[in-house]
């Protein structure tokens, strides 16, 4: 443990040459919000996904989203212990034959960016806490069932286009863990608004005349951010972007006998953030006002850019907000 934390400290201090996570250059799942982050037995929570596609330049296309349901309290509470059961049920549903998943299977497969899931009545089974996993696949082509997929993720699924497997830039697979409690509750964080460059967003439309440092895009007045052509990111100007998280979002965390942790993750279509994740509330240090993200147009291109801020708590709660700007 000592070695791990020393390494983490060094890792936090040292960078690498990969593109930052805040720069969206492919299909990306940014969050999955559950209307009741702490679910009750025999309930049907709704899950809705926030995704972005950075592969084609500002052409919004709808990737295929497939959900897989029915894993409750796997061994050790570990998501990968769901694989054997899910694989068997999918095999039964598709008779073991590889095929594109384009229709729903009740209780097992649903489609679309929003879905509901069933929490079994016996999800607690006499224990104080239960866990349900809902898996999903987001694909720039077609999601298929395949009993023996190459480069297996653990689930018998593939993402292909014209018969070719798509890469991680166009295929995201993951899961949403739902904690099940009889009495404990958790609310999603609340975002009351945002600021950009220290200012609230403009409310005027193009017809009303855009303010200074704004330009028209369709009928909207969007702030203009100069394109940075410097060779080093540190030479680029930064513009602050901050979601206004309600202080009441910080709830007590009875399991850890402290307050919730809250953090915000920033990402951008066309551009990046200087530090992608910031603490909003820390159980030891409390509320952090300095949680804004610094938007940078390094390696960006002229045109619209979308900024995302996803606020999470450490108990499965999420909320998000997005904002468009023009890079010139």
């Amino acid at each position: 443990m000592k070695r791990v934390l020393f390494a983490l400290a060094m890792l936090a201090a040292c960078g690498n040459d990969f593109d930052p996570k805040s720069s969206i250059t492919g299909i990306r799942v940014l969050g999955v919000k559950v209307d009741t982050p702490y679910a009750k037995p025999a309930s049907k929570p709704t899950l809705s996904m926030l995704y972005a596609d950075g592969t084609s330049d500002r052409v919004v296309r709808d990737p295929k989203i497939v959900w897989f349901h029915g894993c409750t309290n796997p061994n050790g509470g570990l998501y990968h212990q769901c694989y054997p059961g899910l694989s068997q049920r999918l095999g039964q549903a598709f008779q073991g034959h590889a095929q594109i998943i384009d229709k729903e299977v009740p209780g097992l497969v649903t489609l679309g960016h929003t879905t509901t899931t069933d929490v079994p009545a016996d999800a607690l089974a006499g224990k104080p806490q239960g866990k349900v996993f809902v898996f999903f696949a987001v694909c720039g082509g077609d999601v298929s069932y395949d009993p023996n997929p190459p480069n297996s993720s653990g689930l018998p699924i593939r993402c292909t286009k014209n018969g070719e497997d798509l890469s991680a830039d166009e295929f995201v697979y993951g899961y949403t863990p739902l904690f099940v409690f009889d009495k404990l509750t958790n609310a999603n964080p609340v975002i009351d608004g945002l600021t950009f460059g220290g200012n609230a967003p403009a409310t005027k439309t193009c017809a009303e005349g855009c303010p200074a440092d704004h330009a028209c895009s369709g009928s909207r007045c969007l702030p203009v951010v100069p394109l940075c052509t410097a060779s080093s990111e540190t030479d680029c100007p930064q513009v602050a972007f901050k979601p206004l998280v309600a202080r009441a979002s910080v709830e007590d965390d009875p399991l850890n006998q402290s307050q919730e942790s809250l953090w915000v993750e920033y990402a951008a279509l066309n551009g990046r953030f200087d530090s992608g994740t910031r603490v909003v509330n820390d159980p030891s240090h409390g509320w952090n006002d300095d949680s804004e993200g610094k938007f940078v147009t390094f390696k960006a291109h002229p045109g619209e850019a979308t900024l995302f801020a996803v606020v999470r708590d450490n108990r499965g709660g999420q909320a998000w907000i997005s904002f468009d700007v023009i890079v010139q």
């Binding site: 400290a9 201090a13 996570k21 953090w263 530090s275 994740t277 603490v279 240090h285 450490n314």
Partner: peptide, 24 residues
């Protein structure tokens, strides 16, 4: 002894932020 204050969470570990202290 070592103490670090992380202004943002460690990549992939949102729960590890703020004070990071080590002493043996």
């Amino acid at each position: 002894k070592l103490k670090v204050f992380l202004k943002g969470p460690v990549e992939g570990e949102p729960a590890i932020a703020g004070d990071l202290g080590l002493h043996t």
